Computed example of a mutant assay.
Amino acid sequence: MRIVHAITSVDLRLGGTARAVIDLAEAMAARGHEVTVITANDVNVEQWAQAQPKRPRSLVDKNLKPIFSARRPSSETMRTLRTADVVHVHAMWEPFNLRVAACCRAVGVPYVVTPHGMLDDWCMAQKPWKKRLHLALHGRAFLEGAASVHCTAAAELQQSAKWFPRGRGRVVPNLMDLKAFEVLPGIEEAVAAFPEISQHAVRLLFLSRVSPKKGVQHLVDAVAQLVHDGVDAVALIAGGADADYRVALDARAQKLGITHRIVYLGHVGGTLKLSLIQACDMMVIPSSQENFGFVFFESLAAGTPVVTTELVDTRDELRGSGGAVIVQQNGAAVSAGIREVMRRREPHAADPMRMDVARAWVFRELALDVVTAQFEAMYRDAASMRTTA
């Protein structure tokens, strides 16, 4: 198939959406499809500048960004869209997306939309009047004109569907490359890099952007409760931090008397990240919203349990893996979830948490060939709706 992905920017500094698009484009190209990524920003596209077998091609068209513009899309853009079997448009709220969809309609080519969680209840509660206005003016027609609105979990679709009542929703999990998790590096690299791992009995890992959305304050409160109850716990916070939020977290930890038990590691990547996940007793991310949450499934693939909240869209999938505890978003509930994992990981627990089973679940349900086949099926169904030769 000729598949076109459209996203305003593939700048990886802007977040996980760009990473998801790059991984999906490369996976589809590797399976023999002719893949082009159209973007309005030339950042991070240099690796696709030259056409290569089984690699995506990049096409930068800055004329697409303004919604009200006399500048037409380039002739190359229109030729690429016209000859595509399907166009996959990523994210919401961008004028770029509306213009790509309009071009698709003009040439009779079907398009698929992935909101990437941006229609979740929590996201829609942020600057709600702007988003509702966008939907009323353009967004609802954009969504309902799509061959499919792709969500990564049933809970995401349930929340999102009310914004496109006459549209067609479809659930396909995010694509993950699990190759690095097939043979794990062991804990030695992390233990050598972070001495705190060896200094405490219960190591709680937070691996994500440190921002208010991620609910780190609830983890701080949970650590305080555990320490009060006599548990030798430490929270290892890995990820870049919003400056103001970090100040507030430090003040909270100081007030609770646990400053030395909240340790910031900064960004951690590569084999060190995998080693760190293995070296900790559990991953704890009390987030307000995640439409997928790659890090949860990475943790399970490394054999490490997960504690997260009922606000995460993949909560049912995580619970079904057998390796996660889902709690309400508050310190007491997070503390109780941590204690549940501790209890179920004891040698003679009545209901043991079988991380070998959870790990096998990830490799079965999220295997690269399994998920890419689901995307291919979605694209074939969309391509069948084409109205031009």
Rank of each mutant, 00 (worst) to 15 (best):
K65S: 06
P66D: 06
I67S: 08
I67P: 06
F68N: 03
F68L: 15
S69K: 08
S69E: 03
A70F: 14
R71K: 14
R72D: 01
R72I: 00
S75L: 09
S75T: 05
E76Y: 04
E76D: 12
T77P: 01
M78S: 13
T80N: 04
L81E: 00
L81H: 00
L81Q: 00
R82Y: 11
T83Y: 14
T83W: 06
D85M: 10
V86T: 13
V87P: 09
V89G: 07
V89C: 14
A91G: 14
A91S: 15
A91T: 15
M92P: 12
M92T: 13
W93E: 14
E94H: 15
P95L: 09
V100E: 03
V100Y: 01
A101E: 07
A101S: 15
A102F: 06
C103W: 02
C104I: 04
C104E: 15
R105Q: 14
A106T: 07
A106Y: 00
V107K: 03
V107T: 10
V107N: 00
G108I: 01
V109S: 08
P110T: 10
V112T: 03
V113H: 02
T114H: 04
P115V: 10
H116G: 02
H116Y: 08
H116C: 01
M118V: 03
L119G: 06
M124V: 04
M124N: 08
Q126M: 11
K127H: 05
P128Y: 03
W129C: 00
K130I: 12
R132L: 12
H134C: 08
A136D: 06
G139K: 13
L143M: 10
E144K: 03
E144G: 11
A146N: 02
A147S: 10
V149F: 05
H150N: 04
C151M: 12
C151I: 12
T152W: 01
E156S: 09
E156H: 00
E156F: 06
L157R: 11
L157S: 09
Q159F: 01
Q159S: 13
A161V: 09
A161F: 07
K162E: 06
K162S: 05
K162F: 08
K162N: 10
W163I: 03
W163C: 01
P165W: 12
G167L: 06
G167K: 04
G169E: 14
G169I: 05
L175T: 04
L175A: 09
D177Y: 14
D177T: 08
K179M: 10
K179W: 12
A180P: 10
F181A: 07
V183M: 08
V183G: 08
L184D: 07
